[in-house]
């Protein structure tokens, strides 16, 4: 060993991930560009601020969370603003990602049926592109849910401007949507971390390995490899 510490050169794939995505660099594929990742985390952080300020208002069972922010009055003030940030970043992300989210013919029907279960049992999906059908459907469901939370949330934010029945309905719909959201987010975090190792780094450094892509998104791997060949 020499006396000076050897400096690892920066991973060229990670460097490339600053401005590009869907390319192959060495043995790694760039899955999410820097803008894409920052958008995802902006949505995630605003969501969790909204979640932790909303839960203590929702039920006293989570009342202790209010102290993280300085009390329930602060939550009541912060929650709608977190919601505004969440909605703005979500809309931005929606249009940024929409191009990759086109459903293939028959895919929607498949995923509402047996495909969901075979996916949960880890069966191969040779056709999965950059996003599989379930991911795409989740994307649309979350976007729709965001819209529902925004509209009902506005009514709850300014109750004096709306009739009583609409306020009551908004609270019920806000709660229902958020319950679906909470279940969805638990699954999303599980699949993105523990269940599928190698996935989380696509949202941190932006790259994934070839074996990961071959297993989870073989269609995407083919496309990216072909593009590289074409460019070369």
């Amino acid at each position: 060993m020499s006396t000076t510490m050897p400096v690892e050169p920066l991973n060229p794939a990670v460097l490339a991930a600053r401005h590009n995505e869907d390319i192959l660099v060495g043995d790694e594929l760039v899955r999410h560009s820097r803008v894409s990742r920052l958008l995802h985390w902006a949505v995630a952080i605003s969501f969790f601020v909204g979640l932790f300020t909303g839960l203590p208002i929702w039920t006293p069972l989570f009342g202790w969370m209010a102290y993280l922010f300085g009390g329930l009055e602060v939550c009541r003030w912060l929650h709608p603003w977190a919601g505004v940030a969440f909605a703005l970043f979500s809309v931005w992300m929606f249009f940024y990602w929409l191009g990759d989210m086109r459903m293939l013919p028959g895919e929607t029907r498949e995923w509402f049926g047996p495909k969901l279960w075979t996916y949960m049992k880890y069966e191969d999906e040779p056709d999965a592109g950059k996003y599989n059908g379930g991911q795409k459907l989740f994307f649309y469901a979350v976007s729709l849910g965001m819209l529902g939370l925004l509209l009902t949330g506005l009514v709850m934010w300014f109750p004096l401007l709306f009739p009583r029945w609409l306020r009551g309905l908004s609270i019920v719909l806000h709660d229902f949507t958020f319950i679906c959201f909470m279940v969805g987010i638990v699954m999303h975090i599980y699949l993105g971390t523990t269940a599928e190792p190698g996935t989380f780094r696509s949202m941190t450094q932006g790259t994934v390995t070839k074996p990961w892509a071959r297993l989870h998104h073989p269609g995407w791997l083919r496309t990216v490899t072909e593009n590289k060949d074409r460019r070369a």
């Binding site: 880890y122 279940v183 699954m187 269940a195 390995t209 071959r214 297993l215």
Partner: peptide, 27 residues
């Protein structure tokens, strides 16, 4: 909602216990 959230968390643990992580054969 409380039951649904708890069920989702328990469900992920059950899934992990049943199927484990999905790891590429190379790894």
């Amino acid at each position: 909602g409380v039951v649904a959230a708890a069920a989702a968390v328990i469900g992920t643990f059950a899934h992990f216990a049943t199927y484990g992580p999905k790891v590429p054969p190379e790894d």
